[in-house]
Write a protein that binds this DNA or RNA. Structure first.
Lengths: 129, 129
DNA sequence: CGGTATCCGTTATGATACTG
DNA sequence: CAGTATCATAACGGATACCG
């Protein structure tokens, strides 16, 4: 009979982990959080973010920032200027998240080579069958 | 003129960060890694994982495990028994990833309440416009 | 500059049925 | 038990056009 594995201090039924994973783990969020974390004052304007993230569309940048704002990770400040300026800054909660996210990014950076090799090996083996 | 923000020690052009984020950050991977990390011996069989992850379909569990295996994070061992038994175990690399993933999960666990409140507040404000 | 609205193809994922 | 195969559909996300 199958055993249920449990994670200490975490109940998958109670905490809808998935809801948050969908945020941290979507296509652009981690990237945006890392960029903000490494900006002066942990703050950047829309166009800077757009320029700093290769391949992101305006639509997705807007959408992702809104979601981060909704989660209280990012603050949005509009300046009444012409042309308009909008700045995004990590909130206290966002700055806090910076730590684990930074460690994850560092891990990826450090192990990317190994992962790539593993993928090649796996794909090669798969193609021979 | 827009400034490009850079992350120290990480070049978005060189390391295809996105490829890996897509893995760690997809719908089920973090969950599976955490479960394996908290299993005895960091090892569990297919049916245990299935039972421990509310809502996952058999297809997605298979797919996700294959991808984790491809990245060298998880090892798959088939036992020639009837009925068959298949065990998945974190590799050395996977055990290593455990650390940053665990911290992220702990962060989520600790801040989930705050995030939920922020969402409610945001949605309420949005509905009044 | 920093959006929003719309259209639309691609991908991700669930349901279901079948298999060694 | 642990898959695979097939189908259907929902969600994602890019391109484009337009606006304050």
């Amino acid at each position: 009979m199958a055993k249920t594995i449990t994670i200490p201090g975490y109940d998958p039924q109670k905490c809808e982990l998935r809801s948050f994973i969908d945020r941290v783990a979507d296509k652009w969020s981690l990237m945006i959080i890392s960029l903000l974390a490494n900006s002066p004052d942990e703050k950047a304007r829309f166009s800077d973010l757009k320029k700093s993230i290769p391949g992101i569309s305006q639509r997705m940048l807007t959408t992702t920032l809104r979601n981060l704002e909704r989660d209280g990770l990012v603050n949005r400040e509009v300046f009444a200027e012409v042309p308009p300026r909008v700045e995004y800054q990590l909130t206290k909660l966002g700055k806090n998240l910076k730590v684990p996210v930074g460690q994850l990014m560092a891990w990826i950076e450090g192990n990317w080579g190994t992962i790539k090799k593993s993928r090649e090996k796996f794909d090669l083996k798969a193609s021979r069958s």
